[in-house]
C-alpha cells in the first residue's frame, strides 16, 4: 500500500516567532520606500516615504504629492537634524522631539524602526500580542499604541510587513511599503 508521506507537523507559532525575531534582529541595514497617511485629530497628511536605516544612522524623507513639501529627517544616537523644503534646519536630541516641535506631529519614530520590520519596540513592554499560524505578528499593543500588521512580503529569508496601521487616541499612522531593500 502506498505510504502517505506525513508532512512535518506545523511548528507551533511561538517557535516560529522566536526564529523570526532572531532573523529580523539581524536585519539592521535596510531601506524601505512607500506611502504614508498620517492623521492627528481632524488633520491629515499624505506623503511618500523613503527610510534608510543602518545600525547607527537613519535618514527618513517624507514628500508631499508631486514631490513638494519634502521633509528630511536624519541622525544618529546623539543628534537628529530636520531639513524642510525651504532649507530651514532644526536640530534636537530625538526624532520625536523634532517632529513635534517643527511639524507638530507626535510620531513614534524610534518604535516605528522596530515595528516596520514586524518586531515589537525593543524599549517598551508588550501589553498585547497576537501571532498568525506562521509565527508573524498580526497585532501588538505597546505604550498605548495599537499596531496592526495587515500584510507581509518575503524578504531576506523571512517576511516583513508591507502594510501597517498604527493608532493611539487621536493619532493614526498608516504605512504601505512598495519596496524593501537591504545592503
Amino acid at each position: 500500500c502506498s505510504t502517505l508521506w506525513q508532512s512535518k507537523p506545523q511548528a507551533p507559532a511561538e517557535t516560529l516567532w522566536l526564529e523570526r525575531q532572531s532573523q529580523l534582529k539581524q536585519l539592521d541595514n535596510w531601506t524601505l520606500r512607500g506611502r504614508t497617511a498620517i492623521q492627528q485629530g481632524k488633520e491629515g497628511w499624505n506623503a511618500g516615504v523613503s527610510w534608510h536605516q543602518s545600525p547607527d544612522q537613519f535618514e527618513i524623507r517624507l514628500t508631499g504629492p508631486f514631490s513638494q513639501g519634502a521633509v528630511n529627517l536624519s541622525g544618529d544616537q546623539n543628534a537628529v537634524l530636520l531639513t524642510n523644503s525651504s532649507g530651514e534646519r532644526y536640530v534636537a536630541a530625538t526624532p520625536e522631539q523634532l517632529l513635534e516641535e517643527v511639524l507638530g506631529w507626535q510620531l513614534p519614530i524610534s518604535a516605528l524602526r522596530d515595528w516596520v520590520k514586524g518586531l515589537p519596540f525593543s524599549e517598551a513592554a508588550v501589553t498585547y500580542r497576537e501571532l498568525d499560524r506562521d509565527g508573524r505578528l498580526v497585532a501588538l499593543e505597546q505604550a498605548g499604541w495599537q499596531v496592526s500588521f495587515m500584510r507581509y512580503v518575503p524578504f531576506q529569508g523571512t517576511d516583513v510587513p508591507d502594510k501597517i496601521f498604527i493608532k493611539r487616541d487621536q493619532l493614526s499612522v498608516r504605512l504601505v511599503v512598495s519596496a524593501w531593500q537591504s545592503e
Binding site: A37, W45, P65
Partner: peptide, 23 residues
C-alpha cells in the same frame, strides 16, 4: 486625496494647498 491601499481620504482647502504647486 484618496489612497486606496492606505484606505484613507485626506481633504484640504484647495487654495491653501495649491498655492505654488505644479498642479
Amino acid at each position: 486625496f484618496y489612497d486606496e491601499d492606505l484606505e484613507q481620504i485626506t481633504v484640504k482647502n484647495q487654495s491653501a494647498t495649491l498655492a505654488d504647486t505644479p498642479a
